[in-house]
Every structure is written in structure tokens, then in C-alpha cells.
């Protein structure tokens, strides 16, 4: 349905998106995961025709939309990361304005506004000015605006940034329902939990490149022969860390506060070795946990960094 082919973007000679290939099939929910600055928003800007790529192509049903994006715009809804609404206008007035310029027929506009307000759950507050809304409510109107023209494809760029858990849950549930009703979704986030929860397939981006892609199961299989162990210590000791890194089978040791995260090959005697060196350097192990692999671990495995680094 929607596809990017070797999509690249350079700003002043610096490559911020590098030959990205991704596709969305009809009705799919696809995640674009990566830390801040990975190139997700720039990729979305190019897909949505807001930004011209330096090279590569974006196609809708095998037709390039770079030069003639009108067809894509008619079926695409974009929820930007920022609250792209007029603060001095009410939710209703914002929807009415954007509905008109999206080309929603006049006789359908009122009903579409009320439908979308219903979907995002702010029908009762529709006459309130945006500037008086909480962060969560603004996010909901931000989404409603992208739904006005009943898009077949919905791109959401970090739609839950900076909002309360209740609003986040509401938005995630709303996106899931839209997807279940047939809307194709491209969801970007640096919250891997959201992507795991919502998406059928995931692209992981870092430094402008897609570094991994596939279903959740496929991505987790990257870690199939590795364990992640979280160890809480009473203190961090440099000699202890050096010795831990030197244990046979340990691939990475990450420090976070007084805890360390160890990625190591399975079926190795890591635990007994850790106990041994803790005695040796007088470091007390306060807690010990074998972690179920997640996309966060996949990202850590691939980049050596966490998503929030």
C-alpha cells in the first residue's frame, strides 16, 4: 500500500535519514521505534509529503507521490508530535477549520466533527478553547483533527509524549480500535512498550538507518540465545565491573545507578561467576533478576544504548 524506497534526507551535507526502506500493508499496524534524533520524524515528514527527500521515493499503491502528493493526502491522516492546533480557538472551531481545508463535504462536516470528538472522548468539552485544555486533552484533539477526513492511513508521531497515564491508555486503546476497524497505522515512539502493545511489525531506527525490522517475535529472536540479567548491588566497584565483563559469555555490561544489566550467552555459568567476584571485591548483591527479553533489549543488543539515551 505505502512504501518507501531508499529514502534519504540530508541537511547541510549531514545525512539524517539514510536509505530507509519500509512498507505498510493495508490494515496493518506498524511501529517505528528509535531514540530521539534517530530520524523518525524526518522519515514521517517525507512520507507525508511535507519534506522533499534528497533521494529515494515514496509510493502509494506503486505510484510515486513525490511529485504529485494529492492522492496520498486525500487518504492520509498525520498526527504530529507537536500540538498543531490554534490555541485561541475551541476544539470545535479547530476541527471545523481543518475539516473544511481537508475538503470534507459541507453537509458531512458537522457529523464528522461530532464523530471524531466522540472517538477521542471530548465531545462535552468541544466549545472549550484549546489553551484551557490539559496536555492529554490537547493530544486527543490533535488526533481528532487527523481523523476528520476519515483517512485510510494514519501516521502518529509520538502521540503520547508528556501526558498522564490515563490519557495515554485512552489514546493507545483508540489507536488499536481504529486499526481494528481497518485503518492502516504507522506509529512512531521511543516507548517500546507502546509499540509492542500496538504494532504487528516494527522497524527500529538509529542514526537515520533502519537497523532491524520484523514482527515482535522475529526481533526478539535476535536475542534467542542470550539472557538479560539485572543485578542490584550495594555499590559500584570498577574492579568488579572489569571482572564481570571478563566472564566468559558476557557480551555487554550496562551500569544504571547501583544496578548492572548483563547480556550474556545462554547456558553459561554466569550467576556463579558473579557471586564469586562479588565475594572477591566485597560487593554485596542485593537483588538478582533474569529478564524476559523485550524490544528494549533488542535495541540495547543492537546499539549498545537504551532507547532513552
Amino acid at each position: 500500500m505505502l512504501e518507501t524506497v531508499q529514502l534519504s534526507k540530508q541537511f547541510k551535507g549531514k545525512t539524517v535519514v539514510d536509505e530507509v526502506d519500509l512498507y505498510l500493508d493495508q490494515g496493518e499496524s506498524v511501529g517505528l521505534l528509535g531514540p530521539n534524533g534517530a530520524g523518525k520524524s524526518t522519515t514521517i515528514s517525507m512520507i507525508s509529503s511535507l519534506l522533499k527527500p534528497t533521494s529515494g521515493d515514496v509510493t502509494l499503491n506503486q505510484q510515486s507521490i513525490i511529485k504529485n502528493p494529492a492522492e496520498l493526502r486525500a487518504v492520509l491522516g498525520v498526527v504530529p508530535q507537536d500540538i498543531a492546533l490554534y490555541q485561541e480557538l475551541s476544539a470545535y472551531e479547530n476541527l471545523k477549520f481543518f475539516g473544511r481545508i481537508y475538503g470534507v463535504p459541507k453537509q458531512q462536516l458537522e457529523s464528522r466533527i461530532q464523530e471524531t470528538l466522540e472517538i477521542v472522548g471530548i465531545k462535552e468539552r468541544q466549545q472549550g478553547l484549546i489553551k484551557t485544555f490539559s496536555g492529554g486533552m490537547k493530544r486527543r484533539v490533535n488526533i481528532a483533527t487527523a481523523l476528520l477526513h476519515n483517512p485510510k492511513i494514519l501516521i502518529l508521531d509520538e502521540p503520547t509524549v508528556g501526558i498522564d497515564p490515563q490519557s495515554r491508555h485512552y489514546i493507545l486503546e483508540m489507536v488499536r480500535q481504529l486499526n481494528q476497524q481497518g485503518t492502516t497505522v504507522l506509529y512512531t515512539s521511543h516507548y517500546m512498550g507502546e509499540v509492542e502493545q500496538l504494532c504487528d511489525r516494527v522497524y527500529i531506527m538509529d542514526h537515520g538507518q533502519v537497523i532491524a525490522k520484523g514482527t515482535k517475535a522475529e526481533l526478539l529472536s535476535i536475542l534467542s540465545n542470550e539472557d538479560t540479567i539485572n543485578v542490584q548491588l550495594d555499590r559500584i566497584d570498577d574492579e568488579f565491573l572489569s571482572s564481570a565483563r571478563a566472564i566468559d559469555g558476557v557480551r555487554k555490561v550496562e551500569v544504571s545507578g547501583n544496578s548492572i544489566h548483563i547480556i550474556a550467552k545462554q547456558e553459561r555459568q554466569i550467576v556463579s561467576q558473579l557471586v564469586k567476584i562479588s565475594d572477591q571485591f566485597d560487593v554485596q548483591i542485593k537483588n538478582f533478576q533474569m529478564e524476559t527479553p523485550s524490544l528494549e533489549n533488542v535495541f540495547l543488543h543492537l546499539t549498545g544504548r537504551t532507547l532513552r539515551d
Binding site: 507525508s48 509529503s49 511535507l50 494529492a70 493526502r73 486525500a74 492520509l76 498525520v78 504530529p80 507537536d82 500540538i83 498543531a84 492546533l85 490554534y86 490555541q87 481543518f98 481545508i101 481537508y102 475538503g103 483533527t145
Partner: peptide
């Protein structure tokens, strides 16, 4: 700054409007 212009640019409304 508030990205409303970008949102407008994402519609099929004629640019000069």
C-alpha cells in the same frame, strides 16, 4: 512554530489560499 502551518500544508488546499 506551532506546526499549524505544516498541518495546513498536509491538506490538499491550494497553497496560495
Amino acid at each position: 512554530r506551532e506546526q499549524t502551518f505544516n498541518r495546513i500544508a498536509l491538506t490538499n488546499a491550494p497553497p496560495l489560499y
